[in-house]
Design a binder for these strands. Structure first.
Lengths: 244, 244
DNA sequence: TCAAAAGTGTTTTGTTTACACCCATGC
DNA sequence: GCATGGGTGTAAACAAAACACTTTTGA
């Protein structure tokens, strides 16, 4: 146990009361790779290891509210296009200095944003995570699974892409997040069909190597929506008498 | 604030420490309807209202462990076919007697189990929820959404159905959980194709009104599995060079 | 023999992937 | 004019829903 002494010991003995922290898995696609924002611990335990940004829940804060406040110290909150709760971990031994529950959030920063971040934080590709403290590496992987799943049936791409983009750029963000190739030509049709994206009418000039100018798209809504709810077992379309 | 006085006040003032409880949304299909197990509060706040079973997190318990312990006082844990974490709520004012975080779980009891439950608990159809205390009604609806979604792309039906069943029974459980009709004939083919269910080889005699005897099926695995992961945007089947 | 319930065969529909081909631009 | 992407058209693959028809039983 740490050096806080009697006060902490008394608290821990009391059933049902525990320290609570919030942690953020903030992803951004950078240079074609899915990256997560990590913070380097300057003192034990896990000194020198990397951990998720976050901290103690304030006395009168909601969880999401606390997460945004803590994150504001690392990234400008305006850069965060999406934030959702991921999971809560409460293994009694997850924190060596005493019982601490942690509620993790998934946050997304659109590509090409370059938020100012403190010197002790850095973006790390999730394919090459550095040594990480506590159970934070596992939480990063939870976040990746969540993002990956939601790319299939929601419009969550809006939080990965900048406000305007070409289809080949967008397929790059999908590729980075999903971990496999995504054909721009088909992605375009799927997202258009689902009404997720629309053309701006403009196009970007082709690069020095030539090629047809690419049309510029944008997402139609910039908050999470389920766009493909019933992959299967969908309700009968006509006379759909719901039973509740 | 409640009358606990100085001790509680001191705790609440201390940043990062809060009471923590676990709550269970336990569903069972009963008489063709999706029902949730509720507990009737005997004292304020919300006296007489119905709430989710649960209670304070113990000093050295994990969250899931605590949930199982608390649930054991309401339903026999052997009756619980599935338990998964749902969400954590931490609004500062969610509990009138003082800051309390709650981590909710989703639990499923297979149909036709008849667990012994205490006199102050009862099953309520979710289409006719009684007046409920705290934010528990919202948590019930979170649970229903989760169940409904997972029926589409996982084998979670195993936790709704008894060990053996006919297809028309199974379609009844799906109907109750999804809220719309599910044709037994197509459900059979979908679940067989996905390898979720298999025939036992036996059949049940037809009822007094005649009819062909129904084949008896069972789920092949009785833990959660994703059986239809990439509804769309699936990775290329051949030469699927994953990038991580 | 008829009604009832289960199960099979087949068609239709919808969605996504694959792939060939056409388009617009820089050099 | 030709290489280089971008974009369209179209076919193929696949899965699920709809529906007609067959099977097996009780009365």
């Amino acid at each position: 146990m740490g050096g806080t002494g009697a006060v902490r010991d008394m608290e821990e003995a009391r059933v049902g009361t525990a320290a609570h922290e919030v942690l953020a898995v903030v992803f951004q696609v950078r240079a074609g790779r899915l990256c997560v924002l990590l913070w380097r611990r300057a003192r034990p335990p896990f000194e020198g290891d990397w951990v998720l940004p976050g901290g103690r829940l304030g006395a009168d804060e909601g969880l999401g509210q606390s997460m945004r406040r803590q994150l504001a110290q690392k990234v400008d909150v305006r850069d965060l296009a999406h934030l959702e709760q991921l999971e809560t971990r409460g293994a009694p031994d997850r924190h060596p200095e005493g019982r601490t529950l942690a509620t993790a959030y998934l946050g997304l920063v659109p590509a090409h944003n370059e938020p100012v971040i403190p010197g002790d934080t850095a973006w790390h590709a999730i394919s090459e995570l550095p040594p990480m403290g506590f159970d934070h590496a596992a939480i990063v992987h939870s976040g990746r699974r969540r993002l990956r799943a939601k790319l299939s049936y929601t419009n969550i791409g809006f939080a990965l892409a900048p406000p305007e983009f070409t289809m080949s750029q967008l397929s790059g963000y999908y590729r980075a997040a999903l971990g496999h190739d995504v054909a721009a030509t088909n992605l375009r049709r799927v997202l258009l069909r689902r009404g997720q994206i629309e053309e701006t009418g403009r196009s970007v000039p082709s690069g020095r190597s030539g090629g047809r100018p690419a049309a510029v798209f944008r997402f139609r809504v910039s908050h999470l929506e389920v766009t493909d709810e019933f992959a299967v077992l969908r309700p009968p379309p006509k006379r759909a008498e719901k039973i509740y």
